[in-house]
Simulated assay, not measured.
Amino acid sequence: MNGELFLRWLTSQLLPSLTEPSVLVMDNAPYHSQLTEESRCPTTSTKKADIIIWLEQHNVLFRPHATQPELLLISKPNKTEPQYKVDNIIPSWSHEVVRLPPAHPELNAIEQVWGYLKRHIRSSLHHFTRADLQARLEEATLCATGEV
């Protein structure tokens, strides 16, 4: 998965299928966190000329003959709050975005499900074959849904 594929899926599949206003929970996967062009800040891989353009666009004063590292130091305190592409797209479809804080997988329901499935499979997988893995996965799914 990458940001471009995620945005395409979001706008062509998920959002059109939601019939009522919904809350979409975003974790910190890189493809959920693509910055808008306006909120991108120069990095060490940014060319000096592009840093200068960024500083001028943000009305930040700098010495004309400053080096790239000096320009980066000047840009850091002037960077804007990050804005994510999905945070602009989702509300335009009348839905809300909730972002999970970084490094808190316990707040992400799917992480809990994956954790349960992995623990179950690890404890019951006797032979590492595709068939045994599939059987343990089905068994874990049934246990998780209360069907066993």
Results as ranks from 00 to 15, higher is better:
residue 119 R to Q: 15
residue 22 S to W: 07
residue 4 E to F: 12
residue 58 H to F: 11
residue 128 F to G: 00
residue 32 H to T: 03
residue 36 T to F: 14
residue 122 R to G: 01
residue 33 S to Y: 05
residue 88 N to V: 09
residue 11 T to C: 15
residue 117 L to N: 00
residue 56 E to L: 12
residue 33 S to G: 05
residue 102 P to T: 10
residue 128 F to H: 11
residue 78 N to R: 12
residue 71 L to A: 05
residue 9 W to F: 15
residue 82 P to G: 04
residue 79 K to W: 10
residue 31 Y to G: 00
residue 73 L to Q: 11
residue 121 I to C: 09
residue 75 S to D: 02
residue 26 M to S: 01
residue 93 W to N: 05
residue 122 R to E: 08
residue 70 E to V: 04
residue 139 E to L: 12
residue 94 S to Y: 10
residue 22 S to V: 04
residue 73 L to E: 10
residue 106 E to Y: 08
residue 11 T to K: 15
residue 106 E to C: 07
residue 85 K to E: 10
residue 47 K to P: 00
residue 21 P to W: 13
residue 79 K to G: 06
residue 59 N to Q: 14
residue 124 S to H: 15
residue 137 L to E: 03
residue 133 L to N: 03
residue 103 A to E: 08
residue 49 A to Q: 12
residue 129 T to F: 14
residue 89 I to D: 03
residue 148 V to Q: 13
residue 65 H to G: 01
residue 87 D to M: 06
residue 60 V to K: 04
residue 104 H to A: 14
residue 77 P to N: 07
residue 114 W to Y: 11
residue 30 P to C: 05
residue 116 Y to F: 15
residue 107 L to Q: 09
residue 140 A to P: 00
residue 72 L to G: 00
residue 16 P to N: 06
residue 49 A to H: 08
residue 111 E to D: 11
residue 21 P to S: 14
residue 72 L to E: 07
residue 128 F to T: 06
residue 57 Q to C: 14
residue 39 S to A: 15
residue 31 Y to P: 00
residue 52 I to R: 12
residue 42 P to T: 05
residue 48 K to S: 06
residue 50 D to W: 13
residue 110 I to H: 07
residue 51 I to T: 01
residue 88 N to C: 14
residue 74 I to Q: 08
residue 147 E to V: 14
residue 27 D to F: 06
residue 1 M to W: 13
residue 58 H to G: 04
residue 143 C to M: 11
residue 11 T to W: 12
residue 146 G to T: 01
residue 41 C to N: 01
residue 16 P to V: 13
residue 136 R to M: 13
residue 14 L to E: 02
residue 37 E to K: 15
residue 57 Q to V: 08
residue 111 E to H: 06
residue 35 L to H: 09
residue 30 P to I: 06
residue 32 H to V: 04
residue 23 V to Q: 07
residue 50 D to F: 09
residue 100 L to F: 09
residue 80 T to D: 07
residue 148 V to A: 09
residue 9 W to V: 01
residue 48 K to V: 05
residue 74 I to L: 15
residue 120 H to I: 11
residue 145 T to R: 09
residue 74 I to T: 12
residue 111 E to M: 07
residue 48 K to W: 06
residue 96 E to C: 08
residue 10 L to C: 04
residue 15 L to I: 04
residue 93 W to I: 03
residue 75 S to G: 02
residue 123 S to P: 01
residue 24 L to T: 00
residue 89 I to K: 03
residue 101 P to N: 06
residue 28 N to R: 08
residue 73 L to F: 07
residue 57 Q to R: 14
residue 99 R to D: 01
residue 1 M to G: 13
residue 115 G to P: 02
residue 19 T to V: 06
residue 111 E to Y: 09
residue 140 A to K: 02
residue 91 P to E: 03
residue 112 Q to K: 15
residue 55 L to Y: 11
residue 121 I to Q: 02
residue 54 W to N: 02
residue 46 T to D: 01
residue 36 T to A: 09
residue 78 N to W: 15
residue 37 E to A: 14
residue 69 P to A: 13
residue 108 N to H: 03
residue 102 P to L: 06
residue 132 D to G: 00
residue 41 C to H: 05
residue 100 L to N: 00
residue 131 A to L: 12
residue 135 A to G: 00
residue 68 Q to H: 11
residue 107 L to A: 02
residue 55 L to H: 03
residue 28 N to C: 10
residue 56 E to D: 13
residue 14 L to D: 00
residue 24 L to C: 02
residue 72 L to Q: 02
residue 58 H to K: 13
residue 148 V to W: 08
residue 88 N to T: 12
residue 49 A to W: 11
residue 129 T to V: 09
residue 62 F to S: 00
residue 8 R to D: 10
residue 39 S to H: 10
residue 25 V to G: 02
